[in-house]
């Protein structure tokens, strides 16, 4: 099974670089990337195991089951919200409130929490290297988030908004989505508030209202990005959009990001989880 995935991904990688070489020339990097995606899709229709993101899922599964930290235990007893050790459907119901932490947490912050509390791992370095750099082939967080999220594949997003802290996170997320700040006066809504608009040639999903745009967008992270040839997570997406907004660096697992993801999940309610998706 693992071998098959690996071979599929390797063949695809080769086919893709050949494909990209063929379309280079005056074409922009964006055109290259969209041709690349087309090619990936075609190959994945023939062989679903060809998605290179699946390598992250496999690495994540291995890491999840590895005994680590001062407590020398695996993450298998971690409670992602559906009870200790239950991963099926967990991501589809996150962010959610966790009584043990008295906090609303998304997939990535909860994984970090379990590493610290369950395994007794020093999570400083994990957090610092949460987003892998190009050529590094992935980070521990990217592996684990891909694995945990993939265990919700095929399930509809079911936002959790019954606990007062979940309600508060949603309200804060909504306020943040519309809050204009920084020298360019941008808010998330500046770029994600109108259906069918684009920046340069990049299509922008409208995330300001519930619907298909939000469902397709939010239910598909972590995603393998053809443009960076690596898997990126939802925390990374938020961080990169805040960079485009000219804001300072938003903290990994910060309350602002949790609130935004809570809001986006509600917009995407009912969307079917399909990860790791393939994106530009």
């Amino acid at each position: 099974m693992k071998m098959r995935r690996l071979i599929g991904a390797l063949i695809l990688g080769i086919a893709l670089s050949a494909g990209l070489a063929a379309v280079s020339g005056p074409a922009t990097a964006q055109e290259d990337a969209s041709k690349g995606i087309e090619q990936y899709r075609k190959m994945m229709a023939e062989d679903p195991f060809a998605n290179p993101g699946l390598l992250y899922v496999d690495s994540g599964e291995a890491l999840w089951k590895e005994k680590r930290g001062t407590n020398n235990v695996s993450l298998e007893a971690c409670d992602m919200g559906k009870g200790p050790g239950v991963l099926e459907g967990a991501m589809a119901e996150m962010p959610r409130y966790f009584a043990d932490a008295d906090k609303v947490m998304d997939v990535e912050s909860r994984i970090l929490w379990c590493m610290e509390k369950l395994q007794g791992l020093d999570t400083g370095p994990v957090k610092k290297k949460a987003f892998s750099k190009s050529g590094e082939g992935g980070s521990e967080m990217e592996f684990l988030a891909s694995y945990v999220s993939s265990m919700s594949n095929g399930m509809p997003l079911k936002p959790q908004l019954s606990h007062p802290k979940e309600k508060e996170a949603y309200a804060l997320g909504e306020a943040l989505f519309f809050l204009r700040a920084g020298p360019f006066d941008f808010s998330c809504e500046s770029c994600h508030g109108t259906p069918g608009s684009r920046i340069r040639l990049q299509d922008l999903p409208d995330l300001s209202k519930p619907g298909v745009d939000a469902q397709k967008t939010i239910a598909t992270w972590p995603a393998y990005r053809v443009s960076t040839e690596s898997v990126k997570t939802m925390q990374h997406r938020m961080s990169d959009c805040y960079r485009q907004m000219r804001m300072p660096k938003v903290g990994f697992g910060s309350d602002a990001v949790t609130a935004l993801i809570t809001y986006l999940m509600k917009q995407a309610e009912g969307g079917e989880v399909q990860v790791p998706a393939l994106k530009r």
Partner: peptide
Amino acid sequence: AGGVPAEKLQKIINSSFKDPDKS
């Protein structure tokens, strides 16, 4: 601000964003 006390929102923002150089 959108149903959330502005003070609360500002507190969340202040604690969530880090210096780009000293992250």
